[in-house]
Design a protein around this nucleic acid. Structure first.
Lengths: 233, 233
DNA sequence: AAAATTAATATGTAGCTACATAAAAATGTC
DNA sequence: GACATTTTTATGTAGCTACATATTAATTTT
């Protein structure tokens, strides 16, 4: 069905990638111009262009105007992670999702939160702590701060019924997000809520979102022991 | 200098994104056809198409032929991480990089390694353990297995001089990679090598690569306490 | 009425032209 | 020779046409 001699941009991409993998084009090498590759493979320059863009996005080559296209000498491993709302994450694992509000109160932002938002002076924000459960076992403990200046509506939401996670993601689109991963030791109430042995290692995801220049929320999500995050594709 | 009325695809993307953010197009809504948006904004359909592709890639909208374009109801947080070679990572932080080979020997793959590669039976592979240092302090401890069937050249490399990390990334391109993050507790020799207090939480990156269907290598990289991974952009 | 077929439609892709832009290379100037 | 200027060139982008393809919607057949 495919017109025999018609190359799609994915075909071109795969061809060029294969050549990089088999060292026809070695790391650091400059590739032929898009146009020459086009002539060689018998397609239009636009098609080669699209293919090259994709390879550049994947981190395999680097392109510069006039400078041409080069195979990256120090290829980086580029991994993309999808972090869905916690309910979905739990349900996608085939587990029953439950949610439990721990506390909800206005409070002054501590240093760590100010740092995340890039604030110079402390501010009053809504602090929400909650526990997400999978099959009635602790799954993720979240400690969240919501800026009530940018998001006053959160004050009217019944957070005992609906998690701030879910409400925010559905009702408060953001324009910028900062994600960071780390590990902490299970201690005190954190260990207690997660039913984790004292001293066990816990995986932590921190997310901070803004709309334009205005802070929306920052969360520290601590996962129960054994949690693993796997890259897409 | 910019021709007043000329819209680039990034302009269109930003416009549409703004409308999603300000709820002109609400979650779940179907957007107008590309062509209608093109007419409205005064540009070609191709331009809108490119903009939409980008928004789809970012996870903001979903597109289906004939079905049209819809604003995603459950937006996911999509984060991209670049994991450079360890030398670069250290040097980019302005620290002095050092490397130390701990052990290098052929051995039978344990269950965990078989699982990563999807092997049914154990195999003989090269196991390399090494320590990366930043300013002479332990930075990352790596425990690596290299498939000497797909990568026999590794046997001739002097791994005391050059880290397997670096040699592989520069000499062995891969076609598929699997990345996963987790947290473990500092124990035994791991704690010792990293100079980490017993029981402290350590961040772990596991990477497995293949060329076609053939395994190349799998590494468990354990970072010293305090390590944090931050998403790009 | 249910199932199979056909038509309509929105997005996906390839190819072309024309021009913009960044950066390297060549040239000119002091 | 060092510096500024101009030219060249490879990629980047916009717009157009034409057709492919997946789905839904409409229609026909059983």
């Amino acid at each position: 069905m495919t017109p025999d001699t018609r190359l799609s941009w994915t075909d071109v991409r795969d061809q060029v990638r294969a050549r990089i993998l088999n060292r026809t084009y070695a790391p650091g090498d400059r590739l032929p111009r898009d146009e020459d590759i086009a002539t060689e493979l018998g397609c239009a320059r636009t098609t080669v262009h699209r293919a090259m863009q994709d390879l550049a996005l994947a981190g395999l080559v680097e392109r510069k105007r006039k400078g041409g296209t080069h195979v990256r000498a120090d290829p980086v491993t580029r991994a993309t992670f999808d972090i869905p709302i916690t309910r979905r994450e739990v349900e996608d694992r085939g587990a029953k999702y439950n949610y439990q509000l721990i506390s909800r109160a206005m409070d002054q932002t501590p240093r760590a939160v100010m740092a995340r938002f890039g604030l110079q002076t402390p501010a009053q924000m809504l602090r929400v702590r909650a526990l997400h459960l999978a099959d009635n076992r602790p799954y993720i403990l979240e400690d969240r701060w919501v800026d009530t200046t940018s998001t006053p509506e959160i004050l009217k939401v019944d957070l005992a019924q609906q998690s701030a996670n879910e409400w925010l993601v559905r009702n408060k689109p953001y324009s910028r997000v900062d994600v960071r991963f780390s590990a902490i030791t299970a201690e005190g109430v954190t260990a207690e809520y997660l039913a984790a042995p004292l001293g066990s290692a816990l995986f932590v995801i921190e997310r901070t979102t803004w709309i334009g220049a205005d802070p929306i929320t920052t969360v520290q999500s601590v996962a129960a022991p054994g949690y693993q995050l796997v890259a897409q594709s």
